[in-house]
Each structure stands twice: as structure tokens, then as C-alpha cells.
């Protein structure tokens, strides 16, 4: 199933291992004992990982396992109650969401969060905000700096959109894009912030198989051209097993397995967690991705509407 050669890993001091090719640069992200409690509920606990500077990692697990919460912790939408997050060796303690982005983490959202009333191009330009440099007087009085920087911004926005073949949609209002294109635009916008680490929350949700295939190629392309790390949450096992070099499995807020796609597919604990509740769907050999996918999809579909509401509501509470 895995259509790439296995990455060779080396152990690094700290919470995990990273691909051998990234050894020189050290991990871009390290989490140790990371956790958060909501009231008494431990939504995530003892989350320990290292992500190499050009690694593509996967975060999988049943709905409600705490995957999105991990992203919210990394981006400081939630302040962790436990543990340490090191970004490129620097502690992100006390940083705001905006500061973490400036330090190098960009993300997409499971329930799409575009700037609906802005055009596709302007969505990307908002991502470039901190890399487009002119001051308020230049904006208001259209000084030369404004024109220079806006021209540059326009060109690189189109370049970024072109990764996903979306340059011709530049003038379209973001909210009128089809679902799949909205997901792709979120990725482009995140990329526009020039991250070191790109977090993708269910990037293939709602995409058809051919769109998903294209997405896989594009995620690899992004990693290769920008030389950045990607950590993605996804239920589509073809995608996860196809492009992730290292996979972390969460269940009830705890990491129950870590390893290469090969290792994960044959891990009895993972199979149990994924397929335990679907007793009637036995007969699948190994980590039967298709079976897991089917079950997961059915469940996801049922819970999707509900979950995104929950996420929306809980985020608002946090505000």
C-alpha cells in the first residue's frame, strides 16, 4: 500500500526520532509531556513527539481522540496545561496564536475557516501579511513602497495559487469556491505565511479519490519545494499510508502507537482501537485500510456536522 520507500530514522535526544536526512538541522518541533485538561477531562495527555525539518508526519485516531486539540495546542488556540513545545529548539511558552505563526507554524482547519468576503487572492495575501512590508501612511497615501510591495505580493500570491492550479480563481470570492477548492485555498494561505511546519487538519475531507490523489502529490511537492515539515490529521488511510513517513496514533487523548506506516499497519493495539467497535467488520487482514476507512467514513459522516459544531462552540467558549 505504501508506495514510497521507507524513511530511515535516527534517534535524537528528547521525545522521539527524526528522519536521518534531517539530522543536521535537528527537529523542527518537539513536544514533551504535552497535555490539556478541560475541566476534569484530559483531552490530550503525555503527547511526546519530534518532527524532522522536512518530515511528513501523520496524526490519526478515531473521532474525538484529541487530534484537533493537539493542533490547537501547538498553535496556542488553547494554552497547554502541561508540557513543553519547542519550535526549532525555541520554547513557545507564553506565545499567542499570532506569535506562534510568526515563529513558523501555520495550519488549516477541520471546519474550514476562510475569509469569506475576501477574494481568493486576498485570502492568500492575508497569509503573506507579515512578509509584505509597508506602513500605514504608505497604505493611506499610496506611497511608492505600497505599489512595489503590492506588486510583489500579487505575483507571489498567484505563484502560490498555481501550486494547486488555482491562479485563475484569484478574483473569485472565497465563500463561493467549491468545497475541495476551499480546502486547497486554506493550504495555500497557510503556506503564504512562510511556515517551517505546516499543520493540515483533515485536508482530504470531502474530496473525491482523484482530488485526494492530486492532494497527495501536492503535499509532497510542497514539502520538496519549500523544504518544510508537514504534520497532517487524516482519516483517509490511502493518503496517510501513502505520504506519511511517521505516524502517531491517538486514542482517548493518549498516544497508543508511533511508527512508520509499515509498523502502524501491523500494530495490534492500533487495529484494536480502530476496529474494536466494528465487531461485525472482521475478516479484514492486517490493518485493513479499506475496512477501517469505510467504518470511519460512515462514523465521520454522522459525526461531522456534530463535531464541527462542537469544535466551533468550544473554541468560542475558549474566547
Amino acid at each position: 500500500m505504501s508506495n514510497q520507500k521507507e524513511t530511515r530514522y535516527v534517534d535524537v535526544p528528547g521525545p522521539g526520532r527524526i528522519p536521518e536526512r534531517d539530522k543536521g538541522r535537528g527537529p523542527v518541533l518537539e513536544c514533551t509531556h504535552l497535555g490539556i485538561e478541560f475541566g476534569g477531562l484530559k483531552a490530550v495527555e503525555e503527547f511526546n513527539i519530534a518532527v524532522g525539518a522536512t518530515e511528513i508526519g501523520g496524526l490519526i485516531g478515531p473521532n474525538g481522540a484529541g487530534k484537533t486539540t493537539v493542533f490547537n495546542l501547538l498553535t496556542k488556540v488553547y494554552q497547554p496545561t502541561h508540557g513543553v513545545i519547542l519550535l526549532d529548539g525555541k520554547d513557545t511558552h507564553g506565545m499567542s496564536t499570532a506569535q506562534v505563526n510568526q515563529a513558523g507554524i501555520a495550519r488549516t482547519f477541520q471546519n474550514i475557516r476562510l475569509f469569506d468576503k475576501l477574494s481568493v487572492e486576498d485570502n492568500v495575501k492575508v497569509g503573506m501579511h507579515n512578509n509584505v512590508k509597508y506602513h500605514l501612511p504608505s497604505s493611506v497615501f499610496r506611497l511608492p513602497k505600497f505599489w512595489q510591495e503590492e506588486k510583489r505580493a500579487h505575483e507571489s500570491a498567484l505563484e502560490l495559487l498555481d501550486i494547486f492550479g488555482m491562479a485563475d480563481l484569484a478574483d473569485v470570492k472565497a465563500s463561493s469556491l467549491p468545497y475541495g477548492a476551499q480546502r486547497r485555498l486554506e493550504i495555500v494561505r497557510a503556506l503564504a505565511t512562510k511556515p517551517k511546519l505546516l499543520l493540515l487538519d483533515e485536508p482530504a475531507a470531502g474530496m473525491n479519490p482523484s482530488e485526494t490523489e492530486e492532494l497527495m502529490n501536492n503535499i509532497r511537492k510542497i514539502r520538496d519545494t519549500f523544504g518544510i515539515a508537514v504534520l497532517l490529521i487524516e482519516h483517509d488511510m490511502n493518503l496517510v499510508m501513502g505520504i506519511c513517513e511517521n505516524i502517531i496514533v491517538l486514542n482517548f487523548g493518549k498516544v497508543i502507537a508511533k511508527g512508520t506506516p509499515e509498523e502502524i499497519q501491523n500494530d495490534p493495539v492500533v487495529i484494536e482501537a480502530y476496529l474494536g467497535s466494528q465487531a461485525d467488520e472482521t475478516g479484514s487482514e492486517g490493518f485493513a485500510a479499506s475496512a477501517a476507512k469505510e467504518a470511519q467514513k460512515k462514523k465521520a459522516e454522522k459525526e461531522k456536522a456534530h463535531m464541527s459544531e462542537v469544535e466551533e462552540a468550544s473554541v468560542d467558549v475558549e474566547e
Binding site: 482547519f109 475569509f115 499610496r142
Partner: peptide
């Protein structure tokens, strides 16, 4: 002029989706 500049885009982005704007590195 303000509306059609990086500052205006930031202001409108925050209006449209505060959390996404923060995640894009904007000081709300």
C-alpha cells in the same frame, strides 16, 4: 485606500474569521 491595502485586508480578515486571522499571524 485603507481597505485596499495590507492593513485593510487584515482588518477585514479579522472581521471574517478571527481565529484564522490569528493563525495567519495577525495582531487582532
Amino acid at each position: 485606500n485603507l481597505i485596499k491595502s495590507r492593513h485593510g485586508r487584515a482588518i477585514m480578515a479579522i472581521r471574517d474569521n478571527r481565529i484564522a486571522a490569528e493563525a495567519c499571524g495577525l495582531n487582532v
